[in-house]
Design a protein around this nucleic acid. Structure first.
Lengths: 117, 117
DNA sequence: GATATATTTAACCGCTATGTTAATTAACCA
DNA sequence: TGGTTAATTAACATAGCGGTTAAATATATC
C-alpha cells in the first residue's frame, strides 16, 4: 500500500474520477446518478470501481439510503494536496509574473500596431 | 496517451518523484546528484525512469552540460493543478472553518478549565 | 414469495508502471 | 588510445489498473 498523498494523486490521475468529483461539488448523488453520464463510454461496474478508488483515497464518502449509496465529497485530501502544493506556489507565480512582464514588453513593442487609434 | 492533467497527477503519485521535485526547488541538479539519496533503495536506471516520467509530464526540463544533464522545475503543470484545485478551495476551506467553529465551541465549553486565569 | 431496482462482487483480460541487471552511448581526461 | 564518469537503453519480471460480462447481494414493492 502506498502513502496517503500518492493514493490521492493516483486517484486524481483519471478524467472519469475527476469528473465524478466535479459532479459532487454540485451536491450529493448516488451511484447510478453519478454513473449516468458515463454509461455510453463504460459499464456500471467500471464506475463502481472508480468510486471505490475515490473512496479508498478518502476523496468521497459513501453512505446508505435504502438500496441507494449517496456519495459526498471529503475535504481533507484536497487540503492535503493544497498543502503539498504550497512550497511550489511562489515558484509558479513568479514564473507567471515573468510571463506577465514579457507580455508587457510585447504590448509596448506593438503599441504602434494597436487596434486602438 | 492520456490528457495532460492525468499525466501530471500520475507523475505526482509517487513519493520518489515528489522528493525529486522537492529537491529541485533548491535549484538545478543533474541526474547523479538527484539520484544519490535514493541509491540505497533503488538503482540509477530506476531514477532515470522517474525523471523521464517527470519530464514527459513537463514537470521538469532536462538540459545538457557535457556529460551531465542538469534538471530544473517547470512551473506550468503546477499552475494547472492549482487551477484545477480552485473550484474545491472554497469547499475545503469551508470545511476547515467548520472545524474551527467546532474547536471554538470546545474551547468555550472548557473555558473554566482554561490555562488563562 | 416474486419481481424490480440499485449496487457490488467475481473472474477474467490486456496494458502499462516500476523495478531489476547488463550492455551501450556520450563526454571528458591523461 | 584507453580509462573514467555520467547517463541511457535493452530486455526482462511482476504487479496493479481499468475495463469487460455474468452472477450475486440488498432493499423495496406488489
Amino acid at each position: 500500500m502506498q502513502d496517503t498523498l500518492s493514493q490521492t494523486f493516483a486517484a486524481l490521475a483519471d478524467p472519469t474520477r475527476r469528473a465524478l468529483l466535479a459532479r459532487l461539488t454540485r451536491g450529493e448523488a448516488n451511484v447510478s446518478e453519478l454513473a449516468r453520464p458515463f454509461l455510453k463510454e463504460m459499464s456500471l461496474p467500471a464506475v463502481t470501481k472508480h468510486l471505490k478508488v475515490l473512496e479508498k483515497a478518502s476523496l468521497i464518502t459513501k453512505t446508505r439510503d435504502a438500496q441507494w449509496r449517496p456519495c459526498k465529497l471529503n475535504a481533507t485530501p484536497f487540503k492535503d494536496v493544497a498543502d503539498w502544493m504550497e512550497p511550489y506556489r511562489k515558484y509558479w507565480e513568479e514564473s507567471f509574473d515573468r510571463l506577465d512582464a514579457y507580455l508587457k514588453t510585447v504590448t509596448s513593442k506593438n503599441k504602434t500596431k494597436s487596434k486602438k487609434p
